[in-house]
């Protein structure tokens, strides 16, 4: 059948127009996200930049805006991250090794896998309630930085396990068989061959989950982080506050000056998170190039 050339030209023009429209639409979607992000950051920097100085980082909180600082919050967050790293990293990485290297495919490992993936999606406030019941009340840790750190460790554990498993799975099976062929035991293979190759991925997962723990507010409020405290923890059993808690406290004060101070706090938190992500990228690149070389 002969198609009228005018008709086919019209169809071609129309589909070209739709193509163009769709392309523009997708581009607008992409830039909307980025524009909103920049708008937010721009607003925060505009409001909070003037409040940033050394005194802001080294003073305790105060009701006088010019004297208020983040010292207690920064030290509290450092303690929290230390505790999270100390507990979540070994447990998470070992669990990933077990599931990938030792666990046999079967009902039990299916059951474990499904649960760990589901845990990664549980809202953080639920971990807060768990931490309150187990660490604060049952184990009598009270509102200590240890209880807060352990709660956050539980929170990021599934993320660490999932990302470490993916990194371990990405190690080519040939490396393992080559290692066995040379007479290495399973332990030697895992420790000397699999883990070093998987390390960039594992570290990236660890640092990204630490940054997530860094920004959490809800579970810490439940396990009793202090809103006002003028001391830094000296032992794991001491009271503490954390960066997002301090920011939340300032943002909810009636005076507008404190809301600007909250913006300054957000800048500090963003810079810390940005640095942590940069370290993750740096480590990944370094290890990748070393592995290739």
């Amino acid at each position: 059948m002969q198609v009228d050339p005018r008709v086919s030209a019209r169809i071609a023009r129309r589909s070209q127009a739709i193509d163009g429209l769709f392309r523009t639409f997708c581009a607008v979607c992409t830039w909307t996200g980025i524009a909103i992000l920049f708008l937010l950051i721009g607003k925060i920097v505009y409001e909070g930049f003037s409040g940033l100085d050394m005194g802001f980082l080294t003073s305790f909180p105060s009701r006088h805006v010019e004297r208020a600082g983040l010292k207690a919050a920064i030290m509290g967050s450092v303690w929290l991250m230390g505790i999270v790293a100390l507990f979540a990293v070994p447990v998470g990485v070992c669990a990933a090794i077990y599931l990938e290297e030792y666990g046999k495919a079967g009902r039990v490992s299916n059951f474990l896998e499904t649960n760990i993936s589901n845990l990664a999606g549980v809202p953080s406030i639920v971990y807060g309630i768990l931490g309150l019941a187990i660490f604060v009340r049952t184990m009598h840790m009270g509102n200590s930085v240890l209880a807060g750190g352990l709660t956050l460790a539980l929170l990021v554990l599934p993320v660490i396990i999932v990302s470490a498993r993916e990194a371990i799975r990405a190690v080519p099976p040939g490396h393992r068989t080559a290692s066995y062929a040379l007479g290495a035991s399973k332990w030697q293979t895992t420790w000397k061959v699999v883990l070093p190759s998987a390390l960039p991925g594992v570290l990236t997962g660890v640092i990204l989950s630490l940054s997530r723990a860094m920004g959490e507010t809800a579970p810490l409020i439940l396990v009793g982080a202090a809103s006002y405290i003028a001391s830094t923890p000296a032992s794991p059993m001491d009271r503490y506050t954390a960066l997002p808690i301090q920011i939340y406290d300032w943002a909810s004060r009636p005076q507008a000056d404190f809301r600007d101070l909250a913006a300054s706090g957000i800048i500090v938190l963003l810079v810390v998170l940005f640095l942590m992500n940069a370290v993750a990228i740096f480590l990944r690149q370094r290890f990748l190039s070393r592995l290739k070389g």
Binding site: R63, A225, A226, S227, Y228, I229, S231, D238, R239, T241
Partner: peptide, 21 residues
């Protein structure tokens, strides 16, 4: 209470007052 804790801390640095809500 936070204001009281702040000023109290200035004269009693040995005591840590933690205020939450």
């Amino acid at each position: 209470s936070a204001a009281a804790a702040e000023d109290f801390g200035l004269v009693n640095p040995g005591v840590s007052v933690a205020v939450s809500y």
